[in-house]
């Protein structure tokens, strides 16, 4: 895909806001909140618009507000524009759609989010732990994670 075929941020904004469930965030020109149902549609549009580089999928645990926020950073291979998709999901029902059908890089990125937060991705071909071992219990990066002490560990955290 040549540089001419990559849509600018303004063109992307015009098309993205037309998708139901996608809203632009005030004050920025490349960040959008998406609803769970619109995620795959938004990602497919971005892939077609020249944004082929799925840079990152990660989650932030807003314990006080009671939800996880999934962040998708989608860039292109020509300039430095990064489109950020933010998806809020409730902590009790932590599920989202998998982007494995759109970007192949989503496979390991979603496995890492699952391993650290316990967020399940529907449609992922191989959702299992990637950094911790298979029998590990607990989701380490959640704010309410309690470390299981064992005889091999040192001093505890001071909080």
């Amino acid at each position: 895909m040549t540089n001419n075929e990559v849509k600018t941020k303004a063109q992307v904004a015009a098309a993205m806001t037309k998708i139901a469930g996608v809203a632009a965030i005030e004050g920025t020109d490349c960040e959008y909140t998406v609803e769970a149902s619109a995620l795959i549609q938004a990602a497919e549009y971005l892939l077609g618009a020249g944004y082929e580089f799925l840079a990152d999928i990660t989650a932030v645990d807003y314990l006080a507000a009671g939800h996880f926020r999934l962040l998708y950073q989608i860039a292109n291979y020509h300039n430095g524009d990064i489109i950020t998709l933010k998806l809020d999901i409730p902590r009790e029902a932590a599920e989202a759609d998998s982007l494995c059908g759109v970007y192949a890089a989503a496979n390991w990125l979603e496995r890492e989010v699952y391993d650290m937060f316990g967020i399940k991705f529907a449609g992922h071909p191989d959702l299992r732990r990637i950094l911790m071992w298979d029998g590990y219990e607990g989701w380490p990066l959640r704010k309410d994670f309690v470390q299981q002490p064992n005889k091999y560990q040192g001093r505890r955290r001071l909080d």
Partner: peptide
């Protein structure tokens, strides 16, 4: 040392 996955 105070990580959940590191042996001290």
């Amino acid at each position: 040392v105070d990580s959940y996955s590191v042996v001290a």
